[in-house]
């Protein structure tokens, strides 16, 4: 198919993901609120947030890097969408995934993270830097069990191409990696808790603790871009997990349901557990998740 069609369908996919992401975040907050016996926000609140942020007239900036921070962040999120095949079997919604395989996807994620880190640092706030240092520290050990699980998968399916991994999981629920390689899936799911950065691994932004850092320094359309990116990123990371471990999606409703359930796992854990400190969270991933990852590798040796 020609370039224009591909771009248009990619944008369509992006649009769907954005909206679903906004809705999903609202639903999750409502669920969390119910657990805490509150009512929670309205389901359309995230849209209103975005509208408000983008329509702010005033904004201040601290320099070029400061402005580029959200750009890199959004680039990370949208980039992930670009290279991710969304719907299995659909050429329309496989975006630009022919340009790169799983390795590209894994590393594009870091691009956004680093860019945000730079932008936060340029804000001039020491607390932003503190948050970034915590975030980066956590990421190192979070990714380790996930990588081991990915290696185990790559060997199991003998490919690093997401298309082929999803294809190998078709034909019934028992073909999902969840059932053919439960150890790797479990290791990856535990990593996922760190990737989504919900409690207990939310020290990075420490939402109720330090009201400073990117959420405060960034404002109006900068914050708007960040708030646009967050749902995209959440959905697309869930899509990645879906493609790797839960059989992919052959239609949009299935994608929506599966990503909701995957994301729900981290929320589910989060409502029950308090926050870890950085040294605790860093070493947590080096215990059970790492052992599971090592076992996953041993099983394929």
């Amino acid at each position: 198919m020609d370039l224009l069609t591909r771009v248009l369908f990619t944008l369509l996919g992006l649009f769907i993901i954005l909206n679903w992401g906004l809705l999903m975040s609202a639903l999750m907050r409502k669920l969390t609120a119910k657990v805490a016996r509150r009512i929670g926000i309205r389901w359309y609140q995230p849209w209103i947030n975005l509208v408000k942020l983008y329509s702010n007239r005033n904004s201040i900036e601290h320099g070029v890097m400061f402005q580029l921070g959200p750009v890199f962040r959004l680039l990370g999120g949208v980039g992930l969408v670009m290279f991710m095949p969304l719907i299995y079997g659909s050429e329309l919604f496989s975006n630009f995934s022919f340009a790169g395989d799983l390795v590209v996807i894994l590393y594009i994620k870091f691009f956004g993270m680093l860019g945000m880190a730079l932008g936060a640092g340029e804000g001039g706030h020491p607390y932003s830097a503190m948050g970034v240092s915590r975030g980066l520290s956590q990421v190192t050990t979070v990714e380790l069990p996930f990588t081991l699980a990915v290696i185990a998968l790559a060997v199991q399916y003998n490919t690093l191409s997401l298309h082929e991994i999803v294809a190998a999981q078709q034909g019934g629920i028992t073909n999902w990696t969840l059932f053919t390689n439960p150890v790797a899936t479990l290791a990856a799911l535990l990593s996922m808790l760190g990737i989504f950065m919900h409690s207990p691994f939310d020290l990075v932004r420490a939402p109720n603790e330090i009201p400073i850092g990117p959420p405060t320094e960034y404002h109006s359309s900068y914050l708007g871009i960040l708030r646009t990116n967050a749902p995209i990123l959440h959905v697309i990371e869930a899509v990645l997990y879906m493609n790797l471990f839960f059989g992919g999606a052959t239609s949009w409703p299935m994608l929506i349901v599966k990503t909701f359930l995957i994301y729900f796992v981290s929320i589910f854990v989060g409502v029950v557990f308090p926050r870890f400190k950085i040294e605790q969270s860093v070493t947590w991933f080096l215990r059970v998740p790492l052992i599971l990852g090592i076992v996953a590798i041993i099983l394929i040796l």
Binding site: V71, L74, L75, F83, A99, G100, D101, V103, I108, L160
Partner: peptide, 20 residues
């Protein structure tokens, strides 16, 4: 195991960067 096209990745990323 896998595939990668460096030029296309560069084009996509740069394109997105410019647009955003």
């Amino acid at each position: 195991l896998g595939y990668w096209n460096g030029t296309q990745v560069m084009v996509i990323v740069m394109g997105l960067f410019v647009l955003i």
